[in-house]
Nucleic acid binder design. Structure first.
Lengths: 249, 249
DNA sequence: ATCCTGAATCTTGGTCCAACAAAAAGAAGG
DNA sequence: CCTTCTTTTTGTTGGACCAAGATTCAGGAT
């Protein structure tokens, strides 16, 4: 079976579950996507104007606009008055925003997110210890030092997240990093609540330093222990009254 | 600092980065979202008609439609002709679709995704061994057995994914499961390509059985070894010519 | 009288057209 | 180089028509 046959099969399946109910707007979304690919446009390039798109694909300008709203929601294009629609690189932002959409943060999900982080951040230890260079670890020190220089709960939370993000980055896996970043709004919100309850950036910096030291010593047991303890630490400060909705966090 | 203060701060920040450039469509999206929350609508409930929404919020019907297209892209509502817009539970589907959007699968990303799976599926071993009941593991057997009963590359890929999904499910972490499911289109596409090249469902079933056996024996070393080898196995069958776009996979 | 049925009607989303306002880019003039 | 004017393009509105599905209602069967 050739790849083309596979693709045709897949297309037939998708066609079967959407039985010819294709609206003009959906068709336009596909056509515009194809246009982007065929012209090999890059980030920042401008699309044709709404009227041109309408004439090009035989659709009304309203239909074009509805299709562009969808592409905009997907972060594929950004549309500015007079400029028109330009190809955007906000795709990941859109995914993140959508992911966090309508996500109320309950104490249960707090524990859940921390559990996720424990699985991931402990799990990457072996890979970091095996593959991280001295420069990589020095960079971790740099990121960690920033937390001492900021004022305010919000900035501290972002620095804290940046450290853990840098850690995940060292795992060298793009998919993992993308997924971890999806949780950024949720994680930073959790950090904000924790730091508001008990604002001790010094402690955070110290704990991070110990984690980095374990990595420098290539001590995977110590790393696993320290990162687990670090992630479990905040749980005692989280009660049901401390977590609220994180809309647009 | 109270939680309310934190929320107000967060709102001020989001407001600051969107300096009063709120379009009528964006305003409508917010207003409709508020409407959903204020009326405490549940999945399946119908919104007012487009004309009513327009009158309610002093907007043209075209503007209402553009706002609805965004909500639809977000999976918040589903709009059926004559019925109108109804509250949808397709939010996660929308996230998944958006996540897979514009994701071409190169050999590099194939390796990346398999690397992600190795980190995750190895990492959850300890938790499964500690917490999975005999019934959980028996259920794994059940899921695994289905792969012997299906015909065709597509169904086999879905059964294969279902097994690994069940595995991740046993980790007992909702966040991890959600993130893993995000990759479903990509993973099943990879599986389809592999199985098309070399369709051996018997082998897959056998390997899965060995993995289950390791879990039943509470042997974490054997589990880690078997799952790693299982995930590395397909790499030899993947050349650059075998992987294509997984759009709408 | 009650219930079923089928046609007529009414509602609603899908699409299109025309128009005007606002904003921004580009041209023209100092 | 700066300012002003023109033009283009998006933002928004109102209205129109169609097709499909829901509703209503009349009429016949039981």
């Amino acid at each position: 079976m050739s790849d083309n046959a596979i693709l045709l099969t897949a297309m037939a399946v998708t066609a079967a579950q959407e039985p010819a109910k294709v609206s003009a707007v959906d068709r336009l979304v596909e056509q515009i996507r194809d246009l982007l690919r065929d012209r090999a446009l890059v980030i920042g390039d401008a699309l044709p104007t709404e009227r041109e798109l309408g004439e090009l694909f035989q659709a009304s300008r309203n239909t074009v606009r509805e299709a562009l709203q969808i592409l905009k929601a997907y972060g594929i294009v950004e549309v500015r008055p007079k400029i028109g629609a330009v190809l955007s690189d906000r795709h990941e932002d859109a995914v993140r925003k959508l992911f966090a959409f309508q996500n109320d943060i309950s104490p249960a999900s707090f524990l859940d997110v921390q559990g996720y982080r424990k699985i991931v951040e402990v799990g990457i230890g072996d890979h970091i210890i095996l593959h991280a260079s001295a420069g990589d670890l020095a960079n971790l020190d740099l990121v960690n030092s920033r937390i001492l220089q900021v004022e305010g709960v919000d900035d501290a939370a972002h620095c804290d997240f940046a450290f853990h993000e840098a850690l995940v980055m060292l795992a060298g896996n793009r998919t993992l990093l993308t997924n971890y970043r999806l949780l950024q709004p949720v994680i930073t919100h959790i950090m904000r609540v924790g730091k508001a309850k008990r604002p001790v950036q010094i402690d955070t910096h110290q704990t991070h330093s110990e984690i980095i030291a374990a990595l420098k010593a290539r001590d995977r047991v110590a790393y696993a222990y320290l990162i687990s303890r670090h992630l479990e630490y905040g749980q005692q400060f989280v009660g049901s009254e401390n977590i609220r909705s994180a809309r647009n966090g």
